[in-house]
Amino acid sequence: MVQFEGLTFGYSEKLLFQDLALTLQPGTVYGLLGLNGAGKTSLLKLAAGALRAQQGSIEVFGRDPAKREAAFLADIAFVPEDPWLPAVKPAVWLDRYSVFRPSFDRGRFQVLTQEFSLESDKLLSKYSYGQRKKFALAAAFASGSRLLLLDEPTNGLDIPSKTQFRRILAEAIEPSRVIVVSTHQVRDLESIIDPAVILHQGKVLFTIASETMNSRLYAAHLPDIDVPGVVYAEKDAVGWSALVARNAAGGESLNAGPATDAADLELVFNAAIAVPERLASALNGEALVSRYDGSLSDGNKQPGYDDAFGSESRRATEVQR
């Protein structure tokens, strides 16, 4: 289990997290979502021990990451957005670096590098961005680590590789393993990340399980949003891409669109940032008190957190699985 409690952290004068609390359970692939600068990478680095909390505590499988014990470091694998690799060939890398991890599975690594079509006779430093990403992912998935921290893993991957990545990621799910995927490319991964953790203004705004999300919300394309049940909508060329509440208890519900449609994670994320109270109500199955007016989605305003909501963020609904 990975646990952040009362976490406060910032850079120079900018406070990134204040009193952040988050618990990550094994056997789960968490999707870490947030705007640019929300602190996704920093949160991953804090979990890895590459950064240190200014206040509060972090515990990863019972260890303090800040101590950077060898056993702890061998139990985590971090794939940064732009991985660095030394100027050696893959076989040399295996001999020089994988030896620090007793659980490293060389056979699995070979399989993964072959699946990713990585050249074995080329210096790693000469690899392209996508190849470096694939190599780093292969190393992480073969590491035997119980905590996998993947920062924007699909950036730089070609389309077939994204499919491969999703399959490999699914195979990597183990009862004892926590996987955290930080991403802006939610559509690449929405089929596999569960739950989604939305970071905003130094807090965990929502932790939304897929089951809850899809049982309470669905995505629909509407000609008009002046109808009941719309939580959030974005105007497009021919109408509105809307996030709609299903069967809002005691309130209005919209019968547009097939009930089998799933919620769109990108819309859910944008709703979390633009209309967090409406989204929280919908996820809790509560009635929406008003119709959505589209005021935050017409392109004239950036989706952002309303200051008026401010301290309410502490009370933001956490919908756990």
């Binding site: 680095k45 890895a48 590459a50 950077r68 014990e69 060898a70 056993a71 470091l73 660095w84």
Partner: peptide, 9 residues
């Protein structure tokens, strides 16, 4: 990042 996270104290 790789240097710091290499499994050695």
């Amino acid at each position: 990042l790789d240097w710091v996270l290499l499994p050695a104290t």
